[in-house]
Design a protein around this nucleic acid. Structure first.
Lengths: 133, 133
DNA sequence: CCGCATCCCGGATGATACTG
DNA sequence: CAGTATCATCCGGGATGCGG
């Protein structure tokens, strides 16, 4: 029998959840700040701890992660819960409002699958002909 | 009979097309850079001239508009056409790829209508309780 | 483990003035 | 009309280190 209380975690997040090679600079659609979209996706499966989030968001510094989380909290997308105890236990979870962003992210992903290659081609062509960089 | 050749314009753009009071800083979904989404909407009805675009984008400086347009051109969303002649005539138009962004913008608008008020409330509540701003 | 403080850099944005 | 050039500014993002 599998138990799940406040003390244990969900399945660990895939460290390779986000392809570092993915041309995110080509992506014209952004949700929140640079990390907000990825954070929201990390929280889709359930509440996560600060350090858990740092794994898929490779190299994110604590400061920047805190900034993004605070902004998400301030606007009502995320709730921060502190379970008091011998060891500090902080979890971040999506609110219903935060979950509405998942739909938007799906639209963004679908758009990317359909069109991102065209963007790559256009940018490459532009680079060859000069004029843009 | 209504004629429409290259020399005349479409209906002029509504100068109040974008509410300056609209809480755009609350909006978590962004398409392209700060101005790209608005530019794409301006071009929905057909090709537009540089100066036409400046009207609804009140206060945008030529430099910034040029930057946004160049970026949109570079990535294949917009084409720039120069009709030679006595008076210089430059038009910007959406490509088919650029038109695919209109759908995304519709999704963004729909999301905003459904949820932006919740964000306002959350932010206001956060401001009152301190901790965020 | 979680998060804040400080310092820093580069890019995005803008004001102003000038040009073909 | 359709931009360019220059300078100033602001802010996101990050490195590093400290504190509860």
């Amino acid at each position: 029998m599998i138990e799940r209380d406040v003390t244990d975690s969900l399945e660990p997040l895939d460290p390779e959840m986000f392809d570092p090679v993915c041309p995110s600079e080509l992506m014209p659609i952004r949700v929140g700040d640079k990390w907000a979209g990825m954070i929201v996706q990390c929280l889709e499966g359930g509440p996560r701890r600060f350090s858990e989030l740092r794994v898929p968001l490779r190299n994110i510094t604590p400061k920047v992660l805190t900034q993004s989380l605070r902004a998400l909290e301030r606007d009502g997308y995320v709730v921060r819960t502190v379970h008091a105890g011998p060891a500090r236990d902080v979890r971040y979870a999506l609110t219903p409002l935060g979950r509405t962003l998942l739909g938007v992210l799906d639209v963004a992903r679908a758009w990317a699958e359909d069109h991102l290659e065209e963007v790559m081609d256009a940018r490459e062509a532009a680079a060859r002909t000069g004029r843009h960089g």
